[in-house]
Amino acid sequence: MEDFLGIAELGTKTLQDLLDTAESMAEVLTRRVKKVPTLRGRSVANVFFEPSTRTRNAFELAAKYLSADVVNFTGGGSSLEKGETVWDTVRTLEALGVDAVVVRHRTSGVPEAMARQLDIPVINAGDGEHEHPTQALLDLLTVRQRFGHIAGLTVAIVGDVLHSRVARSDLYGFSALGARVILAGPPSLVPEDLAEPPVRVTWSLEEALAEADVIQVLRIQRERQQEGYIPSLQEYRARWGITRERLAQAKPHALILHPGPQNRGVEIDSDVVDGSQSAILRQVQNGVAVRMAVLYRLLGGEPE
C-alpha cells in the first residue's frame, strides 16, 4: 500500500490487518507513557484545505505518539488561506522533504491527484463527498470491539447519505467485512438509486431502527435547509432525529455512532449522545488508534 485514499480500493485482508494493528495501537494509548519510538525521525504534514478540529488533532496526536514530527498547513492565516494552490502546496511539501502527507479538501479527488504528483504516501483525511476512509476505520474498530465481529451485523446509516463521505466509506468498509448495510433518510437525501442490492435503501426510520445492531447517525448540515433538501431543522428532527423514544424501538443492544460534531437536538438528542448505548467517545479514542495504524502501515514498511 503506497497511499491511503479510500476504503473502496482496499482488500478485505488489508482492512483486517489495519484493524488488528489499530487494536494494538489502542493498547499503547492505555499506557501512562503513550509514546513508542516507531517513526522517530520521520515527518508528517497535515494539509487541511477545509477546516477540521478533531480529525486534524487525531492525526497530529497519532503521529506524535509514534514519535514522528508534525507540521500543520491549516486555515487561519496560513498560506492556504492566502490562496496558495494545491500544486504550489505539493511543490512546497516536496521541498520541505516530509515523509507523508495527510490531506483534506472540499473537492473530491484532490488527495488522489496529489498522490499522483508526490512520491511520498498521501493519506486522505476527507475529500468532498467522496471518502473519509480513516473515519470508516474507526467506526469499524469501535463496532468490532463491541460485538467481537462485524460479519452478520446490520448497520443502519441514517441521515444525509447523499452528501456524506463518511456514509460512503462506511458503506464500503462494513460491506467488505460482511455486514448488511441499510441507508435510511428522506428521499431527497437518500434517493432510491443511491445503492445497489444487497445494500438496502429505506425512507422509514422505524424499519431501519428495528433491524439495526449499529446506528450511524450522520450530521445534518445547516445549508441543506437553504438548498431545499429539508424543509427545516425542526421538521428534520421531528421525522429523522434520534431521540430516546425512537431509540427505545431499536434493539436493546443497538450501538449509536456519530462521526461528530453533533448537532444536539437536530439529528440526535443530547440524552442519546450521552446515553449508555452511545459509543461516540470511544469513536474519538479509536480515531487516534486507527490513524496510528495507517501511519505505521504506510511508513513502517520498506518502500515498495
Binding site: 490487518d17 494493528t21 487494536e23 494494538s24 513508542v36 505505521y296 502501515r297 514498511g301 520498506e302
Partner: peptide
C-alpha cells in the same frame, strides 16, 4: 510484541503488530 520498537522499521516489509 516488539514490532513498534524494531530498529529496522521502514527497512523491511511491513508486518502487523499485536497488542502486548
Amino acid at each position: 510484541d516488539i514490532g513498534l520498537y524494531r530498529d529496522d522499521v521502514g527497512r523491511r516489509p511491513w508486518t502487523p503488530v499485536a497488542a502486548s
